[in-house]
Design a protein around this nucleic acid. Structure first.
Lengths: 157, 157
DNA sequence: TTGCTCCTCACGTCACGTGAGGTGGC
DNA sequence: TTGCTCCTCACGTCACGTGAGGTGGC
């Protein structure tokens, strides 16, 4: 039984909770090459500080340190973006770590092969089908509820 | 941020791994009112013994005991069936526990209201949409890979 | 001195998987 | 005595959430 991808029942792909809004103007005042704090990075990407620290503990990012305080450079932010993209595409953090390109050209992005794309598409199609079956079953239950009501009304008349 | 249902990225609804086959004949020899062991119950429903013990620890089932050995009656098996149905429909074990009807009439089944059906359908539709967005993005990456190849070929010529 | 931001443990959640070590009955 | 089945801990997995308790700099 494949554990990693299908053991949980319900949760599908997480969206980074549309958290970009009115303070984009403020953020744009920060020069892109100026390292930002964890709170700023968390706001910029719509994730919690805990999540960013967790990604670091899993060796997905390695921000600068000013004493004990973390500082996220442009490079780190590109990696965060790649991580969140990977999450949206349904990859695990371990898979994302293996696929984040850390080439010398400063390209910190997901680096998927054609085969990886196809495999992931197949995985997601399977999940989608399971969900569709579940929805169909729920609709059946919903309508059978009405039928039961009708039968009772018929029997009572 | 709603944790319970959307924190994990990928895993969707689990199918009980189509594990009914040639030994149905053997199983049918067991009288339905005769309690069966955990190994037999696990095989009958295509789950692990660990899963059945886990459901028990979460108070979803309460099989008989012959000494330390668990014995699953017809009633217990109906509850297991209801649990697995609930899992397929994307409910958590806590939700299933609250919705398993244990009425005096021996009806041990999921007991969903219309509202619960609608809410669950909406939840699954959202998950399905997230997956569809992810698949579309993966297809885009896949085709852009070809475009890059073509550009390189064009530049090289 | 008070707030605020940031820090490091460390346990909790979800649904089990995976040994480890021991027991009863054929 | 050897196998087999069943048992009970108890830690591991996945991606974080959620306090607790402490620190630096305005």
């Amino acid at each position: 039984m494949d554990h990693k991808r299908t053991s949980s029942a319900t949760s599908a792909i997480r969206l980074p909770s549309d958290a970009r809004g009115s303070d984009d103007v403020v953020l744009s005042l920060v020069r892109p090459d100026t390292p930002i704090t964890i709170a700023q990075a968390a706001r910029e990407f719509g994730v919690t500080m805990r999540a960013l620290r967790f990604y670091e503990s899993k060796r997905l990012i390695a921000p600068l340190r000013a004493g004990s305080v973390r500082l996220y450079r442009q490079e780190d932010r590109e990696r965060i973006a790649a991580i969140l993209m990977g999450r949206r595409l349904g990859f695990t953090l371990a898979e994302i770590r293996d696929r984040i390109a850390a080439r010398g050209d400063g390209n910190h992005t997901l680096d998927l092969t054609r085969e990886e794309c196809v495999a992931q598409i197949n995985l997601l199609e399977r999940q989608k089908r399971n969900i569709e079956v579940a929805i169909a079953e729920l609709r059946r239950i919903y309508t059978s509820f009405y039928r039961t009501l009708a039968e009772r009304a018929g029997a009572g008349a």
